[in-house]
Nucleic acid binder design. Structure first.
Lengths: 136, 136
DNA sequence: ACATTTAACTTTTAAAATGCAAGTTAAATT
DNA sequence: AATTTAACTTGCATTTTAAAAGTTAAATGT
């Protein structure tokens, strides 16, 4: 996606403004999915060619990294980069929005409670957990 | 867009997971654009048929409302609903993300500073300003 | 009052993206 | 050595997007 404008919101959408990219980031962020097949098996069932092209774009955009699994060279390990980790507050606010406007979904109640009571702490905790993974 | 899963993030993307919808919300939220032609003239220049279909979907999803301008019956007035206003924290976090990872864009520095120093106050202020508009 | 302009769309059509199924390749397992 | 697994790629039909032109009703200008 070419840059459409100098707007910071538009800029984020240039990276993740589609139906799938943020779900990949979600899976890397909250569900410890790191393999292609893990990502393919999320509830939304994204097509393999789309997954492939989104991973390629996210990597090109510097939001995720890809490396060969040293224990099994067939496998690739996908991870969030620091820029990808920093998408966390956006995802948290999406969860909060749904908890307010679509409460019948599978809302992670505990996370939402923490987001309300100690938002900065929650982000700190999750960020350091994710950042720790980067050095393994 | 049909519901893809029970995930709260996926749910938000079912509403605004495309390149354009959040830009419409941005324009209603930050730039006081309320007419079709205003929205059409944003920097990203969305095609008129796309704008039309997005407005229709956003209205159907309960994020915006549409009414005839009483002063000029050719005009329609588009506004955010409370659910639309509640997207504000998501947009703020996008702005913050770009301020950190794409600082060369047009970052609203003052807003970002406020977001860092008194996030709750910022959201409160902007929300009440937007909510006030709903009763005019 | 009549012609022109404005606002909000709709329609058309070509190009691009998506979604589905099947196929490929290299590495691990049996 | 044969089979299975993981990560893709390819082909093709369908859907969505984008760009341009056209429509309709209301307001404005003369």
């Amino acid at each position: 996606m070419p840059t459409r404008s100098q707007c910071p919101i538009s800029n984020v959408l240039d990276h993740v403004g589609d139906k799938w990219s943020l779900l990949i980031i979600r899976d890397l962020m909250f569900f410890n999915k790191h393999a292609y097949s893990d990502l393919q098996n999320s509830d939304e069932k994204m097509a393999t060619n789309i997954l492939s092209s989104r991973l390629e774009k996210l990597e090109g955009d510097g939001l995720i990294s890809k490396r060969v699994d040293p224990n099994d060279k067939r496998k690739k390990v996908y991870r969030l980069t620091p820029a990808g980790v920093d998408m966390l507050p956006i995802l948290i606010e999406m969860i909060v929005w749904s908890s307010n406007h679509a409460p019948d979904l599978n809302i992670p109640t505990e996370l939402v409670a923490k987001a309300r009571s100690d938002r900065a702490g929650l982000i700190q905790d999750l960020t350091s957990r994710l950042t720790a993974q980067l050095n393994t």
